Simulated scan of single mutants.
Amino acid sequence: MISFTKQGTGKPIIFLHGFCETKEMWKTFSSQLSTEFTVYCLDLPGFGSSALHMDQLNLEEVAVTLHDWMEINKIKQPIIIGHSLGGYVALAMAELLGSELAGIGLFHSTAFADDEEKKHTRNKTIAFVKKHGVEKFIESFVPPLFAVHHQEMLEGEIATLIQYGKMTPKKTVLAYIEAMRDRKDRFEVWKTFTGEKFMVAGTLDQAVKIEVSKLHQPFATAYHELEEVGHMGMFEEKELSLEYIQAFLAEA
């Protein structure tokens, strides 16, 4: 079962969190946007309160699971906005569903597959988690997602994300690292998807380099760069990120 929250009425918007995150990260955005839209925030399978019933998975299977969830909840023509891993899932859903989606948004994410360097890093992470466990991994993983100059100012938000991240089962962490490492390139999906396309990138993002994000811009309905921001714009530049999302949704 997929755990989710639902707020508001109007056009459906679905928010997907990133790796080792939960639906709670979108609370502020959900509250603000629910005055005009029906806002769904999901826990992806294995994270938060959503169970994972397999030790191995791929993003195509996650997309099918979310499509089934959409049908059960009678959600038609949603706009799906995903952070990082959530963006990879949004692209998999765009490939699967095409015109059944009104739009997709990539929040510090990319349509490209992992390159060899990134795959090597994923393999090292798998080895680290197997040896040291999830808690030690999360403690080292979360802070660098934020630009260095934001880490002290946002230490409360970082502590909360670490707290939620530590609750992620080990099998979920390992299964998704492998799924991200092995995911297919979906840049052609990004280029040819006929719905609305939205992207937010951080100029200091170490997980998705700004040079990579820029390659998506020619095919986006709306593209924004957050200056001096790392991988977590929804916290590092909360008001501006929300403003960009509201402007995109108003036009979509």
Rank of each mutant, 00 (worst) to 15 (best):
T125N: 08
Q77N: 14
Q77E: 14
N123Y: 11
E117A: 09
I81L: 15
L66I: 12
I75Y: 11
K74C: 09
T65N: 01
E71Y: 02
S99E: 13
H120A: 11
N123D: 14
L66T: 05
K124Q: 15
H120S: 15
D68N: 15
V89I: 15
K76L: 03
E71G: 00
I72P: 01
A113Y: 06
G87C: 06
A90W: 07
I104C: 07
M93C: 10
H120I: 10
G98A: 15
D68C: 11
T110V: 04
A113F: 06
H120C: 15
T110S: 14
I79E: 03
N73I: 01
M70W: 01
E71C: 02
S109R: 13
I80F: 06
A94T: 08
L91N: 08
T125S: 15
K118Y: 08
A127D: 15
K74S: 12
K76N: 06
D68F: 05
I104Y: 06
T65I: 04
G87Y: 04
Y88C: 11
I126N: 12
I126C: 07
A90H: 11
G86Q: 10
N73M: 13
T110A: 14
H83G: 02
T65H: 10
A94Q: 13
G86R: 10
G103R: 13
L97E: 10
E100Q: 12
